[in-house]
Simulated assay, not measured.
Amino acid sequence: MSGEADFQSMTDNEMVLVALTGDTQLKTQLESLCGAKDVEAVALVVAGDPEKAARALGAAGTQGVGLYDLRGGGTQHHNLLAAIPTLSRNGPVIGLVDHEASQIAQGALAAGVTDVIAQGELTPAMLRRVLRYALARKESERKLTRLRLFDPVTSLPTQILFWEILSLAVRRAKRNHDFFAILLIDIENLPDGHSEDGPYQDLAMNELAQRITPVLRGSDTVSRFERQQLAVLAESMPRVEDVQIVAEKIIEELTRPLSLGIGPLSINVAVGISLYPTSATGAEGLLSRATDAMLQARDHGANLFVFA
């Protein structure tokens, strides 16, 4: 398959090379390389501008790799590097250069391409090796990003992602003169030890995460903030009374006895609540006030919530 952003017939099972170039001779060379016999098939898409190339990479999904024609090496080519971050958001990108040690090659690597390859090294086998490497590296990056942003036990956002979401919520609230709440939930009495299915604490946290989600709205965010803590961001809450109702429902759901194969288990929770903008107007201040309120709730007894 070849053509100007002709990506309607891409399949999930074949690699897709999206070439960003206006050179008809290179297009002919790539058609020959991608269609070479005795090697796995590679679908080819040729795009004449970065916007079309980005769309084609997006359409190719996890099997697409961009090949950005940066040959020539003149000063004007350095202006082309600005398109690399945009392309890379849609898939891995390889820079096609005259020489791998050239200034433009180094600039492309710094701008975010996965690899560079000189035109003189393009053979059917080399092309496929470079494509497989680019796809494998991108997949590894996706897995690492997911591990960093999502808790592997509960699939909830991690503390890192919660901070990012909270920072965006603060900006939205300032712009829209809105009101929101943070509920920091500390969980006590989680069991120690392991079962055949894994550590009891992880099993308990996974069940608690499943319980809390139906209590919240689709627009709310719940995170596994610490190993034994959950954090909830409830945006656009017009009244303090509404926040109180949410806190009561959370406590009711989380304190129902757990059954983990070791008999019924009761846990205690303490909920600290901070409000934007009355408690604080920044992400750090809001979480700090929620932490203080959670500690007060824990000191005053079991299964309580306290407003900052």
Rank of each mutant, 00 (worst) to 15 (best):
A136E: 14
A136N: 15
S140K: 12
R142Q: 09
R142V: 04
K143S: 07
T145L: 12
L147A: 09
R148P: 00
D151N: 14
V153E: 03
V153F: 05
T154R: 00
T154D: 13
L156V: 05
L161T: 03
F162K: 05
F162A: 11
E164V: 08
E164D: 15
I165Y: 13
I165T: 12
L168N: 12
L168Q: 14
A169G: 09
V170D: 06
V170L: 09
R171W: 00
K174C: 09
N176I: 07
D178C: 07
D178A: 13
A181V: 09
A181Y: 11
I182P: 08
I185W: 03
I185T: 03
I185S: 01
E188K: 15
E188I: 00
L190V: 00
H194F: 14
S195K: 09
E196K: 10
G198H: 09
P199T: 00
Q201H: 10
Q201E: 12
A204H: 05
A204K: 10
M205W: 02
N206K: 14
N206Q: 15
N206V: 03
E207G: 10
A209Y: 04
A209E: 09
A209W: 02
R211C: 12
T213F: 00
T213K: 15
T213C: 14
V215I: 12
G218Q: 07
G218P: 05
G218N: 14
G218H: 03
G218A: 05
G218K: 06
S219K: 11
T221L: 04
T221F: 10
R224E: 08
